[in-house]
């Protein structure tokens, strides 16, 4: 289980270091909510990291207000879903954000965390096609 810092954000000593060997299963996470309005963005990024640590191949698709998550680019002194997302990408999680949702929110690849691909809905369907499990974070 990942631990959190005193304010919920990851600390260097608690960040996942070792990944188990590939277990041949794929998890896709669909995030519909943006950061800070609820915990769903934090939970989604945390689950992605946890699943990677367990050896899953992990995809995340950021849809509707979930497209805001990669806009959180800088370090903060409080819980930071953007930092969790950066770690997830670093650990091999594939992250795509809905093109239409991003465009509606004036989000371009220059505005978001590097490594997040802005993609059409078919990008999500490609993720579904290879998935063993799918979970949605919304509320």
């Amino acid at each position: 289980m990942l631990n959190s810092g005193s304010q919920g954000n990851p600390t260097p000593s608690t960040r996942p270091k070792k990944m188990k060997k590939d277990m041949g299963k794929t998890l896709t996470i669909l995030l519909l909510r943006g950061p800070y309005i609820s915990e769903y963005a934090d939970l989604a990024a945390n689950m992605a990291l946890k699943a990677r640590k367990m050896g899953y191949k992990v995809n995340m698709f950021l849809y509707l207000d979930g497209a805001w998550l990669p806009h959180v680019k800088t370090d903060k002194e409080y819980s930071n879903a953007g930092e969790w997302l950066r770690w997830a990408i670093k650990k091999g999680v594939t992250v795509k954000a809905c093109h239409r949702c991003s465009e509606a929110r004036d989000l371009t690849e220059d505005d978001i965390i590097p490594g997040v691909e802005i993609s059409g809905l078919y990008g999500f369907l490609d993720m579904l096609a290879e998935s063993d499990k799918v979970i949605t974070f919304t509320g």
Partner: peptide, 13 residues
């Protein structure tokens, strides 16, 4: 939010 619209958009895709 735009959940209804988003749900049906995805369904159609």
């Amino acid at each position: 939010q735009d959940d209804g619209f988003g749900a049906v958009q995805l369904a159609n895709a």
